[in-house]
Design a protein around this nucleic acid. Structure first.
Lengths: 197, 197
DNA sequence: TTTAAATGCGGAGGGTTCCTCCGTTTTCAA
DNA sequence: TTGAAAACGGAGGAACCCTCCGCATTTAAA
């Protein structure tokens, strides 16, 4: 039964090159924008375009991997906030953190927005973010502090819409303000936060 | 001084072809999605690609013209609603209408979203929409029924974010729900709608 | 009606990108 | 050491957007 596939140790050069490509891609995306040609990234890393494509079968695959760390960090923050803060505060804090990612790493804005949108290819990273939002909203709903008439992710989509579209210089402030508008809009009419914690 | 440019009557065939291209583009965009090649549109209309480009100097220019009608209709609706309905109700109704445009003509979602986002090229159509939103929100703010901490357009950006990103089948319902979340979030804390309206 | 100028038309092809394919080179394990 | 498995490089296929310019059609004047 067991075909005993001759497991070869993965070649060290390949992994080293993969990491080099990843790092270079991140740097180049940051300095030249998200729409640079992949050939430029490959050249900058010192490889041929073929090598890049063997490691990352498509442009989107590369982007996903480059920003997986960011998604991981957001997910970790969600779990921490869920433990450390009361439900609505945690939700709000995390959404503001999401905005901050748009702000400090403007470059990845497109990538984050796509993760939040319906594209299939971002399923992995997007799944992280979906999970985070669900975790945070579920708590608040369970305590009766908010009522949810949309999917948890829709809240991020709204924020991302503001952050993406804002040509004005104040888009970050507006995105933050949008978080509070959303939170206010979700609060159940009569429900004050129970001070008993 | 006056060079007296010999004004020639514009050729009728050119205008006829322009309209034909516009109609064909609308149909093809609707049936095959917004990312069809322009060559296919030209062929379907019975022209060469060169003709299409003479009339619409760029892909975006074509899209803008195709959906200018839609933007005009939305603008007209805004003025009507502003007259016929109380401020917040008018604002809500118009935003729901905006969602409806996403729903019935899903295809143009991308175009509408782009108008609402910061792209320069959509300035004309986008300007219409900005004006509509400002008209509607200003009234409600003036009456003290809502407080605005974001640009009027940011509300649409939020809705568009939901409508665009929603892969699920219920995205329209969610976008509508988002409108109400936003309205609720904008309402000034103690302020009930004056029934005397 | 004829004629010349102005305008419109068609589609080959230039320039970019994304991605594939396969001969060559490097690494790993026996 | 050596042979096979895995990785590399880059030419080039495919799909687009858009430009260019010789040819066809329309307009206005003779």
């Amino acid at each position: 039964m067991s075909a005993q596939p001759p497991v070869r140790k993965p070649r060290v050069d390949a992994e080293r090159n993969r990491l080099k490509l990843l790092a270079t891609a991140k740097a180049v995306f940051a300095s030249k924008g998200m729409d640079v040609g992949l050939e430029e990234i490959a050249r900058e890393a010192g490889f041929g375009i073929g090598t890049l494509y063997r490691h990352f079968s498509t442009r989107e695959a590369l982007i996903v991997q480059v920003y997986r760390n960011e998604a991981d960090q957001l997910a970790a923050a969600a779990e921490r906030l869920a433990i450390e803060q009361p439900p609505v505060a945690a939700l709000r804090a995390w959404m503001l953190l999401f905005v901050e990612y748009f702000a400090t790493k403007q470059i990845i804005a497109g990538a984050l927005a796509t993760m939040v949108s319906g594209r299939e290819l971002y399923a992995t990273s997007g799944g992280q973010i979906t999970k985070s939002m669900t975790l945070l909203t579920d708590r608040a709903v369970a305590r009766g502090e908010i009522r949810l008439t949309v999917e948890p992710l829709d809240l991020l989509r709204a924020v991302a819409g503001v952050a993406n579209g804002g040509a004005g210089s104040d888009w970050e402030a507006h995105a933050r303000a949008m978080v509070d508008i959303l939170i206010a809009g979700l609060r159940v009419p009569g429900g004050d936060v129970p001070t008993s914690g």
